[in-house]
Structures are given as structure tokens and as C-alpha cells.
Write a protein that binds this DNA or RNA. Structure first.
Length: 269
DNA sequence: TCCTATGTTGTATG
DNA sequence: ACATACAACATAGG
């Protein structure tokens, strides 16, 4: 389920454990989510460490302790974080459990497209330091978006919005929501947008990120019916602004939903 | 049974 | 080297 705001919601699920010591680490070693990590290193580094802070950037989460080392969690398609009572049983999709005196901090991921990362050392690892500026930061500029859209000029804008190297945290539903608000057809070539359309796109990226974080990031509520969000999967779903039937089709390899009344495809040359 | 799924990556092709 | 397209990953739920 996780895009920008869902990741932020799940990151906070471990907040009750910040400041407390991890006295035992339980892993499900054959789980695919550990495919790039040394499990012995991870266990050695986390056992008896005090969890101190967490951050997220795009879809990536980072947890730190009072020791050196960088624990990363990516939720993939079906991952989530929870805290549970100390005596809770461990389920088959529970891949990483940090046991503390008063709770367990659990990473769950049935489909295992997610990932646990662990890097030692003082310097931030590339998987963390290379994440581009957040959409809500001052460095997410119209100029940066324009340059990126030019370089990816032949790809459909829907596919380009999903590229984490420029739009960190944007996923399938956010991309559709942004394009719907910006009144841009998902199949429009990224290089064919006018400067005015790019400014609108940039503004709607920020708007959707800000309000998704406000609504979903705190309580996991669904956005209201004035958004495309609650209509995009329902059969016979209608555009909340025009009332027309929404269209659903594969674009750039992902199911894409748009309003044919608002988002029209200009003939390219 | 068959279809779908809020993501990333490796590989092939141009 | 760079951009693009798509299969593959693994499981659950309708």
C-alpha cells in the first residue's frame, strides 16, 4: 500500500520504541526481504542498541540507534510496520522483530517485495544519501522537473512521475491523482508538455504530497470524495469534478485511471 | 480457476 | 552510455 504518506504513517508505528533498548532481534532468515543484507551483521549491530530516531525520504525509511549503523526498511508493495505487546506470536509474514522490554517492533510483508537494508559505518550509505530532494523541499524546483521531463521526453508522463530519482515517494495512485488535478493525460509524452503544464504539474505534485501526508500520514484515513483517490478502483467510478465515467487502462506497465473529460491527449505533430 | 494488486530491478532492445 | 519497455519477483484476496 505504501507511497509517500503511507510510508510516513508506518514509520511512526515504531515511535513508541524510540529511546528504548532492543534486547533481542528476531529475523526470518530465508525471507527475500533480506536479499542484500548480512543478517549476522544486522543482529550484532542492533542487539542491545538503543533505538534513537527514524526518518523517511520518499518510500525509504531509516532507523538509527546509539551505535553506528544504518537500518533501512522499504515497504515494497505490501509491507507494513507495527508495534505489538511483548508476548505477541510471530506470524509467517513477520520478517524482522525488534524486541524491547515493553513491546515488539515488527516489519511485516506477505509479498516480500520490500527490503531490509543494513549498512555499518559513520558515513550514510548510498541507498540513503542518493535519494533526491523531497517534493516538499525548496530544492524540488520547476527547473529540475523541466530538465527531467526533457531527458525522459519520449516516455509517457505517467511513467516518468513514477521515477523515484526525481519524484521520491510518488507511486501509482499519487501519479494518477497529480495528473488528474493537473488535467494532463497520462499518455502525454513527458517532453511534449508546455511550460505552463509543467508549472501546474509541479504545483499539483506539491499539493498532493502535502495533503496526502496530512490526511493519510497521521491516521491512515482515505482522502475525501473530492479526490480521484476513492473513485479510481471502483467499477463505474466517476470523475468527482465532471461526473463522467473514469477510464482505466495500462500506461507504462501500471493500471492507470483518468478522467477523459479533464485529461485529453493533444495530437503530437 | 482466473484476475488483480499503492514497487523495484534485471535484462533486452533501440 | 543512455533511454525505454517489460518480465520477474511471491502472496493474498475477490
Amino acid at each position: 500500500m505504501p507511497e509517500l504518506a503511507e510510508v510516513e504513517y508506518f514509520r511512526k508505528r515504531w515511535d513508541p520504541g524510540l529511546g528504548a533498548v532492543i534486547h533481542r532481534v528476531h529475523v526470518h532468515p530465508q525471507a527475500r526481504v533480506f536479499r542484500r543484507v548480512s543478517i549476522p551483521d544486522l543482529i550484532r549491530a542492533l542487539t542491545s542498541a538503543r533505538l534513537t530516531v527514524s526518518e523517511s525520504a520518499g518510500k525509504q525509511m531509516l532507523f538509527r540507534t546509539d551505535r553506528e549503523g544504518w537500518l533501512g526498511i522499504h515497504l515494497g508493495m505490501t509491507g507494513s510496520l507495527e508495534h505489538r505487546p511483548v508476548d505477541a506470536p510471530i506470524g509467517r509474514a513477520d520478517h524482522l522483530v525488534l524486541e524491547q522490554r515493553e513491546r515488539q517492533l515488527v516489519f511485516i510483508d506477505p509479498r516480500m517485495f520490500g527490503a531490509v537494508k543494513f549498512s555499518s559505518g559513520r558515513e550514510a550509505p548510498v541507498w540513503w544519501s542518493s535519494i533526491p530532494p523531497a517534493i516538499l523541499s525548496d530544492d524540488f524546483t520547476v527547473g529540475a522537473v523541466t530538465e527531467f521531463l526533457t531527458r525522459r521526453g519520449k516516455a509517457p508522463i505517467k511513467a516518468v512521475l513514477l521515477m523515484q530519482e526525481r519524484f521520491p515517494g510518488v507511486g501509482n495512485w499519487m501519479a494518477d491523482e497529480i495528473l488528474w488535478r493537473a488535467a494532463i493525460h497520462p499518455k502525454a509524452k513527458a517532453g511534449g508538455l508546455s511550460p505552463a503544464e509543467i508549472r501546474t504539474l509541479h504545483r499539483e505534485c506539491r499539493w498532493v504530497a502535502r495533503h496526502a501526508l496530512r490526511i493519510i500520514g497521521n491516521t491512515f484515513e482515505d482522502p475525501p470524495s473530492s479526490w480521484l483517490f476513492p473513485h479510481r478502483w471502483e467499477d463505474g467510478g466517476r470523475c468527482p469534478r465532471t461526473g463522467v465515467l473514469l477510464k482505466r487502462e495500462d500506461v507504462g506497465g501500471r493500471t492507470t485511471c483518468w478522467s477523459p473529460a479533464r485529461q485529453t491527449l493533444r495530437e503530437a505533430k
